[in-house]
Design a protein around this nucleic acid. Structure first.
Lengths: 182, 182
DNA sequence: CCACCATACGGAGAGTGTCTCCGTTTAGCA
DNA sequence: TGCTAAACGGAGACACTCTCCGTATGGTGG
């Protein structure tokens, strides 16, 4: 990749992150191009679809979900607290951008989605948490990580779309946790 | 309302229901107008925003949710079965159109939404079910109908966006039910 | 150091959808 | 039947997406 190309690529991602945070994931891509000081052609060459651009943006905080799982596992305490703590981190992270939860959660079931790789990272992070709970004998039979991702993703989606604050979301996550644990 | 106005109003709703079922809630409104045999101006006079049109479409199946609650209550059986049965009906009904669950569920938290009245009907239906469960002593302390609507709405949203079949959704609803019941 | 060319740029513009304005038509009443 | 308020509908302004292609430039071999 030529130096000027990389410069533009990085700048577009940076500007897109900002614009999407301001206006949501359906903001105008021409606006992103304009603010980044490039033509629309340049933007669309680097990112043929909106999804591709979102994918690039998400990379950084998918990594943080991975860390959050480790952090949750490092803590002492009863399984329910651990699970809830992880749920809250997860929701907070995928809600960093308006529309993010819906995007991530629906991509989980779409093998063709460009952000699929991100979902895989989220799933393996979730699996580490579930494995630990299983080892503790705290988890009900037959619980799959996909189910958990859908449940928590659903709560996050609702919270995002309704602008709910963490205190309102907490009891919802508690219901999910109680439904999952023995 | 003049007779020709009413004729057009009804025809637009009818056509919109069909078009939205085919193409989802983001279908072109000009197309709806064209198929209904009216000018765009006529459509936008009757329904200034897309939401207003959706509101009109939803009226009929909100009524059916109301009936479903009564039907669920009329059944014999343990509280868990009753709750699950109602959940499944609820999900099926608000999923009649692609994008419906997200629309309905996010409108629940938006006092300014044009489809707010519909949400109220859903909530009172839900309250009848919860009241019965409470009377049976089957419900946990402090559960609010809004919470239940959010949880089930979240599951429905995920199911809708991921095109999940009822057999896949069922275990998710079971988790929610188990988290709500004593 | 320079010339070359593959690589990248960027903007004009086609296609599509939203929504409004306003001249024309018509229902319903006196 | 004639009048008027209500309703119609389509032309068109504006916005967004995405492509095509002429122009510019970075990087490298001579």
């Amino acid at each position: 990749m030529r130096a000027d190309a990389k410069r533009n690529y990085d700048r577009i991602v940076e500007v897109a992150r900002e614009v999407f945070r301001e206006q949501g994931y359906d903001a105008s891509l021409d606006l992103v191009a304009k603010r980044a000081g490039v033509g629309p052609g340049t933007l669309y060459r680097h990112f043929p679809t909106r999804e591709n651009l979102i994918d690039a943006i998400m990379q950084s905080w998918v990594d943080r979900v991975d860390e959050a799982a480790d952090k949750a596992l490092a803590q002492e305490g009863p399984p329910r607290d651990l699970l809830l703590h992880w749920f809250e981190e997860y929701v907070a992270l995928i809600s960093l951008h308006k529309g993010g939860p819906a995007k991530i959660t629906s991509a989980m079931d779409d093998p063709a989605s460009p952000i699929r790789t991100k979902c895989e990272v989220l799933k393996t992070a979730g699996d580490r948490v579930l494995d630990w709970l299983r080892a503790e004998g705290a988890l009900r039979e037959g619980v799959e990580v996909t189910q958990v991702a859908r449940l928590v993703g659903g709560v996050a989606t609702v919270a995002d779309q309704g602008d709910l604050d963490p205190a309102t979301v907490r009891p919802l996550l508690e219901v999910v946790a109680d439904g999952l644990l023995v």
